[in-house]
Write a protein that binds this DNA or RNA. Structure first.
Lengths: 335, 335
DNA sequence: TTGAAAGCGATACCAA
DNA sequence: TTGGTATCGCTTTCAA
């Protein structure tokens, strides 16, 4: 029944207990200053005995920074399910957290549509907006608040803004070229009605590739995010007689194969398939599915690096970097 | 070329600009105190003109709390890939963040194996350890630091600890009973060598269910986490002649169906399948796969509620709550 | 080698 | 109605 009293132990309490001054105890515990080993030990002992834990907020106030970075995703309107269920965002989020931690920063999760008053009370040194919407208010708010920001290329050149993006156009053309080399003539492009840069740019890249080659534009749009709607879009594409599928909408790759099977199509014999995304089931599907990785881990690492460099140097000059996507060829697109 | 000066605007700066005192400006901006509308407006105007943003750290020091909750997952040893790639943890994480935000708290992402010095500098009001390992050091560290904690039932009764857990034993027996009712006689149990409570308890529940009914124990363990190893385990179970599969190891359900197909087994005719987990592809698989949901969203909400209640009341008395799992029956386990 | 005192930036009491 | 001053808990000169 040790009914420990509520009030937390402060530095002064330790000092009093040890018969030393705040200053000395602080130096002893932080390993700074020139203290005699005896005194240092005495201070440490008192701290241990009292169960002293320094008040983080106070140190931060003194230090002038919080080593905290806000993290939000622009992609999903609040409430439309969780963005983390997407393997891409899951990897992006955890890679960002890991990269930040390695630089001594912790990530604070912000809701997708966060307004300033939701983060104004948080001591954020910087912010990250992953896959911002077009003219994302979140981005504008952070920029206006002069909080260093890392997001995609749409902020290029703005003060305090740092970007990392992928080579979408090149990547899309690479996939399409690959499918053509493997003998596909009617390549359908399955996307989703997303307002992200990737979906917009990849759609444009697909269309211009088709135009250049004078082939029919076989884009199909999923009406909503989620496996169900994307599978429905895939079925439409197959109904249209496609002999290859490039799926950039997020979907579990095995479900695409299921759809093909239902249409009596053998992959890769009758239908070639490439999916964009990080879904781990692609590799173990039957047959294994070729994937275009958007490299969330590399994006996160590069962005955090840029952001931290800006933070440490205090230089608001905008910086940016491009990350290469990676096409992994598997049985589903190789004849 | 507005070369804005580095130093941030503080309250005093606004006060000087407005010809008022810090106190008055503070009251004006916070809407407290009794100020004349004129003065209030003058203060606000000055703040706006200077682009004043209050220092969050300073307010927090004053307020005595940070409204920040640390979030870590015990499950994965650091570096073994990201826990967020699991739909269960992805949902748990985002539901926790959402629930916390609704109560005015923000979530700080901590790495899985975090040691005290990784979070000591963070102003955490509380912590959450999802799916702790047995005797998880993380749990012990938080408890010892007297930081209010929410985790699973293993901390039941300890001061400052709050738990939420699921009815694992009942749930497992329910699934097994269901499979038996549907005519299965040789039910294999596919798990993974995880040190979480769920995997341990579900395994025990399966074994005692088998004993009670004098049927063979057909447990199979995946050697590692990840689709590959789990599919291999499923194949072993099928090789052993199972006529039903209860897969509690995390895997994309369509891959289980693929494995069955490779063994020439039709689902549900020759093989019944139930998967535990939140993988969204189960619903759209062909045939749709029955799933046992561990209800991460409900767990998160209940836990945050308990934690926040304890935080607001300052009462360290331990609390806990049980959440019911949910079995969704689909074609894969219905004859 | 040790300690007194001055901040960090904001809020809240209480006197004017 | 307004403002001086103490305070939150810690770190850091700087003097002794």
């Amino acid at each position: 029944m040790t009914d420990t009293p509520r009030p937390r132990i402060r530095l002064v309490d330790v000092a009093r207990e040890a018969g030393l001054s705040k200053t000395t105890v602080s130096a002893a515990l932080n390993g700074t200053g020139r203290l005699s080993p005896a005194v240092r030990e005495r201070a440490r002992e008192a701290a241990r005995a009292l169960g002293y834990r320094p008040n983080a907020t106070a140190r931060l106030l003194r230090a002038g920074h919080a080593r905290l970075i806000g993290f939000a995703v622009g992609e999903y309107p609040a409430g439309a399910g969780s963005y983390m269920e997407s393997p891409y965002f899951a990897q992006l989020t955890s890679a960002t957290a890991t990269a930040a931690l390695e630089h001594g920063y912790a990530l604070v999760l912000l809701p997708s549509g966060a307004t300033p008053d939701e983060w104004n009370d948080l001591p954020l040194d910087a912010a990250i907006v992953a896959d911002p919407l077009i003219d994302d208010p979140l981005v504008e708010d952070f920029l206006q608040a002069r909080i260093p920001l890392f997001t995609d290329r749409s902020v290029e050149g703005r003060e305090g803004a740092h970007w990392v993006d992928i080579d979408t156009v090149e990547a899309v053309r690479g996939v399409l070229d690959h499918l053509r080399e493997q003998g596909a003539g009617r390549i359908a492009f399955v996307s989703q009605d997303a307002r992200t840069r990737f979906h917009r740019e990849s759609g444009e890249a697909y269309r211009s590739w088709c135009e250049e080659r004078r082939v029919e534009d076989r884009s199909v749009l999923a009406e909503r995010p989620g496996n169900g709607a994307v599978v429905a879009a895939v079925e439409r594409a197959l109904g249209g007689g496609a002999d290859a599928l490039f799926v950039v909408a997020e979907v579990a790759p095995p479900l695409v194969l299921d759809a093909a099977r239902r249409h009596g199509l053998a992959v890769p014999r009758d239908l070639l398939v490439v999916c964009a995304g990080e879904d781990g089931s692609a590799e173990h599907a039957d047959p294994p599915v070729s994937t275009l990785s958007l490299r969330p881990t590399q994006v996160a690492e590069a962005g955090v690096e840029l952001l931290v460099a800006a933070l440490e140097s205090g230089d608001p000059a905008p910086t940016g970097r491009l990350v290469r996507t990676e096409l992994t060829l598997r049985a589903s697109s190789l004849r």
